[in-house]
Design a protein around this nucleic acid. Structure first.
Lengths: 179, 179
DNA sequence: TGAATCATGTAAGGCGTTACATGATTAT
DNA sequence: ATAATCATGTAACGCCTTACATGATTCA
């Protein structure tokens, strides 16, 4: 269901697009919260079309198909977004890794956490670059769509970086005090 | 692979345990980063045993089996943790929902975000209760294992709550200025 | 004694990844 | 001409969820 909603949402926010466009949109925008490859997106769009959630517009060059959200699709998305179910589906391999850090020896754990912190900093820089005017030329991104999401991504990276750094500090401190 | 590592990690940190124990441990500890039901855990433990990563100890009452990590299991976990692959597998339905908020009308979006912020606050309170001495009686949790993870969980909840609140504020402000 | 909890399993079907496969168009 | 990019699809296999299924032990 989530993939379906993600596609409806992307089409709603960014306007009609092809499967190819949506594949790239996934990568460039929503990637830190959800992933999908073209091999999953293309069949899903076909099913959604069969279910009346999207329509296929003009068949462009190279067999390009442009999809647009129908009224029913819009209604379904709205319902899904407003449905207050907690829906705790969350799979985050990095957090899992972080969680298992105490299974390592203290010095190994510290090294790993420091490296992770560096990684988050690098990705933070990538994301920050996306927010700068220079990168915004590709359109849309600035207004509404992407604004809040980008902000969320930035906060997430900062949070993870800080946690990794603080935890490394704490492990170092406690393993120095009783070695 | 992740489930396998999660199980090895939990067994390493908390000591020998049954599939039943691990199922509950999953729920009470790692839940915000990874989920697994008993129907996935039991077969996986059997496979891991066949692969020599864990051993089955004494068969207790009610057919209870107690698993322990083997040397090979420990080695595999260590390798996996230290392997620096970025591994960006992340599926977070809540972030996805948050991301799609701009697909709603401003007033609907604000209402949704406020409700989400309340939800995060509630879960934050739950997590904070876990960190208090009273709840710690069930053992282990306090030292090492759970400490860092709990901290990460708390930071995550706070981050999400703040984002939801700030974004609601921002949408409210911008829809008031040009309605 | 009956309900709750402990304890383990299997099966069907859906979701997601990797790999395979093909061809058109554009830029160098 | 050649490489890069655009563009869509299918198939096999693995991971995960939901539902079905069973029985032992403990507590009130």
């Amino acid at each position: 269901m989530s993939l379906r909603m993600a596609l409806l949402g992307l089409l709603t926010i960014s306007g009609p697009a092809s499967g190819y466009d949506l594949t790239k949109l996934f990568e460039s925008s929503i990637n830190h919260a959800w992933q999908a490859r073209h091999s999953q997106i293309y069949p899903e769009l076909n099913k959604m079309s069969a279910d009346g959630l999207v329509t296929v517009g003009e068949q462009g060059a190279r067999g390009r198909k442009t999809y647009a959200v129908t009224e029913e699709g819009a209604r379904l998305l709205r319902e899904w977004l407003l449905a207050g179910e907690p829906s705790r589906l969350a799979r985050h391999e990095e957090s899992l890794r972080a969680f298992l850090v105490p299974a390592l020896e203290p010095d190994e754990a510290v090294a790993l956490l420091r490296e992770q912190a560096r990684g988050y900093d690098a990705r933070l820089a990538e994301l920050e670059a996306l927010g700068e005017p220079k990168t915004l030329e590709r359109g849309r991104r600035a207004e509404g769509f992407g604004r809040y999401a980008l902000d969320l991504g930035l906060r997430h990276m900062r949070m993870m970086r800080d946690w990794a750094r603080d935890t490394a500090d704490e492990i170092e401190r406690s393993s120095r005090s009783r070695p």
